[in-house]
Design a protein around this nucleic acid. Structure first.
Lengths: 215, 215, 215, 215
DNA sequence: AATGAATGAGCTTTCATTCAT
DNA sequence: AATGAATGAAAGCTCATTCAT
């Protein structure tokens, strides 16, 4: 469905065309992230994105089917990176409860490090009808699955209370992080740091889901 | 600014003018909730709302400044009701931790009972640039303050760990509920009941923020 | 065509109704003059006129067929007064060339004395398509006829060159006065007084049309 | 602000882009003149102009900011041409009083030759609030300055009475011509020719402002 | 591949006018 | 006669998208 060009094979020696294509692709995507963050998805005009990217309006349509797909592609690509990143960050740890802490920290670190991007993902993505009503955000589910796996493993190891539904817990955990991220972004002078927020969410959730110590 | 009619005196049984005016107001509001939920705020045309409400297009503008104010009014009015409702529900309970449970249950009950409305509040409200970037959702803050008060009281009574920031905890708690509500709404066949979700969130949070039992 | 109420007969002893009618009529007309002068005919809303007049919107339509007729009625009534006035001013003078001077002076005096009205007549009346393209401004022609009569009489008495077309001279004369009036109105700080302008126009025209002295 | 194309180099026979752009510009302008003259500025719809020009509605906005700028551009461009034309016509004559005659003749010749255009300039331009209340018609002042210069030169050469204010005389002269032009346009069967009118105005004014012969 | 001029559907909002009371 | 809530037609303008070059 996406008219995304095939990723250029690394050994493609004739690759000028493809290289250029790949560059244009991300050039436009980066411009879109900036413009969407600045003006909001609905207020942003394709012409704005084109200007920022330094290409003609029509060129955008050689790489993306339409405006909405631009937004969706941002989501897909960045979620993939987020998934990879959080998995790498968790790689050295096996304790599922500690992993939740890593997840929280990594997630909010990324929000902080890529504020513009986060702004788009947090705020603007929700503007797209398609995203919320038709689009199936599988990458988000994959991301959420990472939390769910921690919970399920915790249950298997007897660390997490068996009666909890990992699915519900996952969305709760994600919702807490997501809301804090959004508030942090929306507020000019946030009343908390994202580090503290990450620590707090992990702390509360881990204690909340853990099997209570037997007296 | 809204041409809200002067409240008709309760005994004014002939209050046609006022009655009519008040009726029109909520007649339009109800139509807007339905239409926004169905087509989304941006896709919904004023003409749709007018038709659903059974009035002429122009009539809408006698009661609301513009399309956006329609959305904002829905938010304001319904949040006020939510706040009143949850306070009434909590009235009989003094234990701040139990109150959090009541809050969670009441919140998700309302989502369930007024699905269309919840859909608008959850999903569509976030569509309004104004809402997210300019509008200050004081009613939301007030609602959140109810959670914050429970946490703070819990700390005063030695039930909740003193090191937690009530503000961060409040947004976490709300975020968890909000995310579950949104997923429940977006999914055609939800994988969980809102009752269970409310119980789970309350359970996890209360245990998570409570002062641990001294061994 | 005009739904103007019949002028109340002066001896109408039961006249409250008519009196009231007459009062309403000019009350609305005066309000319209003010509002049209302030905002311009097209920008002025019937609601503005109604508010200024202290009546309900619908009431205006009991006295005037529509917005345009309001403008036309202003023109008709005020032109009638202008015609009466200038004729009275000329009454004591028989020399047709002196009469032209009186005409010029009187015309620009009225512009000065009733600036708001003049603004409407000068500027806004020209906005009405009907006025310029369909309406036959017979009162204007009558007004112009007064100039024409002076010229013709001047010719009959051998004071004005016979080869001049009184019709063309009349419009020239009126055009000169009209243009000066408009410039005076449009300029915040006019570069001339209307008295001087009247004197100048009369001076130039009278010399210009007069039979040259025989050497 | 107008996206006037860079003047194509005269020898650029392949200048398709520029040519096209320039053509579109005047294509739209010409259509606007016709439509405005026919229906009047306020009644004319952008869609009408677009249709007449054979372009899409939106195309108009690639060349003109809005409907009003269309009118203003007509005024600016055509006044410039008028100024150039009358100066060329006067070039061979030095006597300032004869020049006034040339001015009058040229002005009314143009009205006759470009009746549609004249209709717009005469009648419709006055419809634009902006034109009359905000816009400063510098081109008109420049045009008027040509008359003023004649008068002033005449005074310097002792041909025109020194006591006359050239500014007032200029507006009078222009007003006379303007009014005659308007009446000629508005009347289906004009009662005079524009040649005769031009001659008459020049004749009356020149005699009127001239220094009287010393007996 | 790239351009960017052209398209034209789409929609909020205004306000003169009506008419039930 | 007076009201003023309701009407609904009307149109300027935007901008995502297309396509000839």
């Amino acid at each position: 469905m996406t008219p995304t060009p095939p990723a250029p094979s690394p050994d493609d020696s004739s690759g000028r065309g493809n290289r250029a294509r790949g560059e244009r692709h991300s050039q436009i995507l980066d411009a879109a992230i900036d413009v969407f963050a600045e003006k909001g998805f609905h207020k942003a005009r394709i012409a704005d994105v084109a200007e920022r990217a330094g290409v003609a309006d029509g060129t955008i349509y050689l790489y993306f089917k339409n405006k909405e797909e631009l937004l969706l592609t941002i989501f897909e690509e960045k979620m993939s990176q987020l998934i990879e990143g959080v998995q790498a960050a968790m790689a050295g740890t096996t304790d599922p409860l500690l992993r939740l802490g890593i997840f929280a920290r990594y997630h909010l670190e990324q929000v902080q490090a890529h504020r513009t991007l986060a702004e788009v993902l947090q705020v603007e993505l929700r503007l797209s009808n398609k995203f919320l009503k038709e689009y199936r955000p599988e990458k988000l589910w994959e991301y959420l699955g990472i939390i769910g796996t921690c919970v399920r493993e915790g249950q298997e190891r007897g660390l997490v209370r068996a009666e909890l539904d990992p699915y519900v817990v996952s969305w709760s955990f994600f919702g807490a992080l997501d809301e804090l991220a959004m508030q942090w972004i929306l507020q000019r002078r946030p009343r908390f740091t994202l580090e503290a927020a990450a620590a707090s969410v992990a702390d509360v959730f881990v204690r909340g889901i853990a099997v209570p110590p037997q007296p």
